[in-house]
Design a binder for these strands. Structure first.
Length: 586
RNA sequence: GACCCCGUAGCUCAGCCGGAUAGAGCAGCUGACUUCUAAUCAGCAGGUCGCAGGUUCGAAUCCUGCCGGGGUCGCCA
């Protein structure tokens, strides 16, 4: 169904059957031979670099190879013309009938068109959000959440077996601080005067309901206890309430996970998975006790040389070896994280993707080193770093002070601009480029706003079908009828351009999935929407090109088949991005 | 000091595994609404792809150095 792959294999067959060989008569490596959509439509429908990549190993001039391939390619029934251009590109022009046949296949495939573009049984794990359960999600979390969720959708669509995961950082000192903050709110709920929240504790109001819930459950029974006694109780309630809140936030953004993995669970119960992971590394001789050199440049105030238990991450490309135990003997975050990624591997995930904020960039090498080491090179970790999102309102930066607890939450943003707009805008940029998010622009209904532009294209398709039902009463518009439409009536260059754009969909899905880049889907949808709007408007200058023509039911049917396919692809693409595809926008 | 990301039109950004004359949108200018919803379209103008080397038949893309912006830097998470 991917015409580019189809023609690439046709060309490869021609090469294999030809007398083009390496200089010493061997078989050529055809891995780099590709067929692509040409940059300039004047170059035809398909372009191949075959002659260029084979010239050197074959020891022949590119144009000579191109000539030989072009002659054979010209015999293909689907090929109307072959031209050799530039340094040796082979440009192919397809028979008009080819596009009609291709469109028929697209319609026949229905919602399966483009799906499973990659044939694989590989299990991919994507970890995203993983926000500390210490409060509501703020805008900073938003991008990673959307990127991870859309990437998961994309990989699933492309054919992978995808696990979507959230790592709950419920161990370590921060959640203890959280628990102490909640304990204060508990005392408040009991009726004690607590005054101002002390420096170092979480001041947010969102802990008040937690305090009340604890008061209702325990009365004043926790008041006289030592911290060591009440802390585990308070912590557990608090974390579960925080996670409930976070899940609500994620739901508002249409972000889903199928596993919430607790950091604490690594060491609770009868097993210590962190120790097991460290043991696995130790068996390979990758653990030692030693000291690290102090960082160059500004020395931390409290620096002192100290012996530590270290992982030899430098053997796997890291800049420095990394500590696994704190001075009090407890595990570092890194040690737990190794165990977690090891656990993912043991669950069968050989491709792992983590979506992090850019401020964790310094953590990438050590984690990749750890995954490589602990899985014996059988699993690989890709990390998608999301750059900062800067908020604007009508061009003016929105100020936030985190200290006062007065930050803009994810919920605020979703409620103000809507889920679709947030998701689309977060994906309308590469994840590693900073993003300006303007509340005003995002809700604007214009071409400046790609969300509405793409959704409107979908709505326009739906509108055409509503209109067709009115103007062409009795015409069968079911998919089966559209598939059987006389599609060879689609000969206008704008119509062919639309079919060609639709034909790029499986290729786009595959490329975006392999690169782990969901933003490409958003850009593709924008292009496809643009091609549809263009063809629509041509119908105003040239009424004979309008999708619906009451005088000509047959060509109307063919065009409706085209519109149907555009609509289906936009719908599939928006679903990957996690945005809705409205039938009407008024 | 080290490492990571970024640098493409006035602005915001695409550019797929190295390919042809580097593309969109916005802003600017010129046009198209008795419509299948103008929330749209057509056209014009706008570039030393940060700088300098290198690899290559071919570099915005790969390598090295430099400049500029952002981020990170032993036990936080």
């Amino acid at each position: 169904m991917d015409i580019f792959k189809d023609f690439a294999s046709r060309i490869k067959k021609i090469i294999e059957a030809s007398d083009i060989k390496t200089k010493d008569g061997g078989e050529l490596d055809l891995a780099n031979v590709v067929v692509e959509p040409p940059r300039d439509p004047a170059h035809g429908d398909l372009a191949s670099n075959a002659a260029l990549v084979l010239a050197k190993p074959a020891g022949q001039k590119p144009r000579d190879i191109a000539d030989a391939l072009a002659a054979r390619l010209g015999e293909d029934a689907d090929v109307a013309a072959v031209e050799i251009a530039g340094p040796g590109f082979i440009n192919i022009r397809l028979e008009p009938g080819f596009w009609a046949r291709h469109l028929k296949k697209v319609i026949g495939a229905g919602s399966a068109y483009g799906k499973g573009a990659i044939e694989t049984d590989e299990k991919v794990n994507i970890e995203y959000v993983s926000a500390n359960p210490t409060g509501p999600m703020h805008v900073g979390h938003c991008r990673g959440a959307v990127v991870g969720d859309a990437l998961a959708n994309l990989l699933e669509y492309a054919g992978y077996d995808v696990g979507r995961e959230y790592y709950i950082n419920d161990a370590g000192v921060q959640v203890d601080v959280l628990a102490r903050s909640a304990y204060l709110r508990y005392k408040e709920a009991i009726g004690e005067e607590i005054g101002a929240i002390p420096e170092g504790l979480y001041p947010g109001d969102y802990l008040m309901p937690v305090g009340q819930a604890i008061a209702e459950a325990h009365g004043d029974s926790l008041l006289g206890l030592e911290e060591a006694e009440w802390l585990p109780v308070v912590r557990e309630t608090t974390i579960s309430m925080m996670m409930a809140m976070i899940r609500e936030d994620l739901k508002a953004l249409n972000v889903t996970h199928d596993t919430f993995f607790s950091e604490r669970s690594l060491v609770s119960g009868d097993r210590d998975r962190v120790a097991e992971a460290i043991e696995a590394l130790k068996e390979q001789g990758l653990i030692y006790v030693g000291t690290l050199p102090p960082p160059k440049g500004q020395l931390p105030d409290d620096w002192e040389d100290r012996e530590q238990t270290l992982f030899r991450s430098t053997d796997f490309g890291d800049d420095i070896d990394r500590a696994l135990l704190k001075s009090d003997g407890s595990y570092t975050y890194f040690a737990s994280d190794i165990a977690y990624h090891y656990d993912k591997f043991l669950r069968g995930f050989t491709t792992q993707i983590d979506v992090w904020g850019a401020d964790h960039g310094g953590y990438v090498k050590r984690m990749q080193a750890a995954v490589k080491a602990v899985t014996g090179g059988k699993a690989a970790l890709d990390v998608k770093l999301c750059q900062l999102v800067k908020l604007y309102r009508a061009g003016e930066p929105v100020r936030m002070s985190k200290r006062s607890g007065d930050f803009i939450t994810l919920r605020d943003v979703v409620e103000e601009v809507g889920r679709d707009a947030v998701r689309f805008m977060m994906l309308y940029r590469k994840n590693d480029a900073p993003l300006d998010f303007d509340f005003q622009k995002v809700t604007e209904q214009s071409r400046d706003n790609p969300v509405f532009y793409v959704q409107y294209a979908h709505a326009r398709c739906a509108s055409v079908f509503r209109q067709a039902a009115n103007e062409l009463p009795g015409l069968d518009l079911t998919p089966a009828a559209l598939e059987a439409a006389p599609l060879d009536l689609l000969t206008d260059e704008g119509e062919i351009a639309l079919i060609a754009k639709i034909a790029e969909w499986p290729r786009l899905v595959e490329a975006a999935a392999l690169a782990h880049e969901p933003h490409r889907v958003a850009f593709y949808l924008y292009d496809l929407a643009s091609a549809l709007h263009a063809q629509w408007n041509r119908g105003k200058d040239l009424p004979q090109l309008r999708f619906i023509n009451v005088e000509d039911r047959q060509s109307s049917l063919a065009r409706l088949a085209l519109v149907h396919s555009v609509q289906a692809v936009i719908q599939a693409g928006l679903a990957i991005l996690g945005a809705s595809a409205p039938d009407e926008m008024r």
